[in-house]
């Protein structure tokens, strides 16, 4: 077989294999937006609207799986899942979006709103154990790009103060420089603290509970519940280990117990 024939065969193979890769990202996005729009049009009838939102959510999920990790896509995924009646997956989508853009204010607001829909118990120990703690560190308010610009600007001003002092021999400029260096150091300290806190609090994988389930003392239904009542659908827990179809989890309050694997949805980092 000569080279030309081989090349033709390769081209033919590529073209024949092309459909297996599925629709392009813009096409998938268009599908998702169409399904979402259909759901919005049918919003007065939840039985008909929810399947449309579920289709939209599936398309958005596909885009996310392909590596399009943007805050806007995370927001759309979450909204589609929530409107399809799947609050836990909506929460998971928001967490995945925040892992990419922790500073995104719309994602934070939407996460707070989604959490407010979870039926946490109003009183009792479980209330303090399973209600998630809000995180308000510097990285939730400032993006890495903002920090880069701010620190670069502060550094520039500090250097400018030194130069100005060299020009005028006026000590005021040294004070000016010192102020900006202190500001820079403060920003750095905040960022360092943020990184340490994230390492401490978020090193374990996050899971969202998809249905009301008891936190048990062991990895079987024969074990007594660790706490009453059951964990509500949408509760957020951290994974410690897995064994025999069960996951050992830690509640935000520190309590540890077991829940079945089939009642959780993981949040990919």
């Amino acid at each position: 077989m000569n080279g030309l024939a081989r090349f033709a065969l390769l081209i033919a193979f590529l073209f024949s294999a092309a459909p297996a890769f599925g629709a392009s990202a813009p096409d998938t996005l268009a599908d998702a937006e169409r399904a979402f729009a259909e759901g919005v049009e049918l919003r007065h009838d939840s039985d008909r609207a929810k399947p449309a939102f579920a289709r939209a959510a599936a398309s958005y999920d596909e885009l996310w799986a392909r590596g399009y990790h943007t805050p806007e896509l995370a927001l759309n995924r979450s909204r589609a899942h929530r409107l399809a009646g799947d609050l836990p997956r909506g929460l998971a989508a928001l967490h995945e979006g925040l892992a990419v853009a922790r500073f995104s204010r719309p994602l934070q607001v939407e996460l707070d709103d989604a959490r407010s829909r979870v039926l946490y118990p109003i009183e009792g120990e479980l209330t303090t154990q399973c209600r998630p703690r809000p995180i308000r560190t510097v990285s939730t308010r400032m993006s890495p790009a903002d920090a880069w610009v701010a620190s670069g600007f502060a550094w520039l001003l500090a250097c400018a103060g030194v130069v100005r002092f060299a020009m005028t021999r006026n000590a005021v400029w040294l004070v000016f420089t010192a102020l900006w260096v202190v500001a820079l150091a403060f920003l750095g300290a905040l960022w360092l603290q943020d990184v340490r806190q994230r390492e401490r609090d978020e090193s374990l994988p996050l899971l969202v509970v998809t249905t009301d389930v008891h936190l048990r003392k062991g990895n079987a239904t024969e074990y007594a519940p660790r706490i009453e009542p059951a964990l509500p659908k949408g509760a957020e827990v951290r994974e410690l280990s897995r064994r025999g179809g069960w996951v050992q989890v830690k509640l935000p309050g520190g309590m540890i117990g077991w829940i079945p694997e089939e009642v959780i949805v993981p949040c990919a980092k």
Partner: peptide, 27 residues
């Protein structure tokens, strides 16, 4: 026939090229 009860902002998805853009800049 029961309407979907959800906050109004949920019905307005983000659109445009940013949805499948490059994501936030990380230096």
């Amino acid at each position: 026939i029961v309407p979907i009860e959800a906050p109004e902002f949920l019905f307005h998805p983000a659109t445009g090229p940013d949805v499948i853009g490059r994501g936030p800049f990380v230096p």
